[in-house]
């Protein structure tokens, strides 16, 4: 299927990627040619019993036990913004009354980057 500038912008929004209109134009050309090449795969006919890919030769289980883990300082040390305890991100939750407070003090714990809230 052909890929145009609008399609690039649609995918870029899904990928949370800022792409300028000029970039989108160039990317549309590149992706269109790449996808045209990839489309050759559609001609490959597979036997019905071709099965699916198994990556692993082994079942992997371990005990549900806490192991070694990063210290808080190590976990925070590469972050752009912290308060020494948490990652800081721009405000995500509206204040009661519907107005978004204009500060950058939302705290975000661990992996759940987008789900922080005021403490």
């Amino acid at each position: 299927m052909p890929i145009d500038r609008d399609e690039v912008l649609r995918i870029a929004a899904l990928a949370r990627l800022r792409v300028s209109p000029e970039e989108a134009e160039a990317l549309a050309g590149d992706l269109d040619r790449i996808v045209a090449h990839i489309d050759s795969l559609r001609e490959v006919e597979l036997p019905d019993d071709s099965g699916s890919l198994t990556y692993f030769d082994q079942d992997v289980h371990r005990e549900d036990r806490a192991g070694e883990s990063l210290s808080r300082d190590d976990a925070l040390k590469n972050a752009a913004e912290t308060d020494g305890e948490f990652f800081l991100v721009p405000q995500v939750v509206d204040k009661p009354g519907g107005k978004t407070r204009d500060d950058r003090a939302t705290r975000s714990g661990g992996d759940d980057a987008g789900r922080g809230g005021d403490r």
Partner: peptide
């Protein structure tokens, strides 16, 4: 932009 060094500008997350 949260855990790994580089962060761009943005009013919302």
């Amino acid at each position: 932009g949260v855990r790994y060094t580089l962060r761009g500008e943005g009013r919302s997350v």
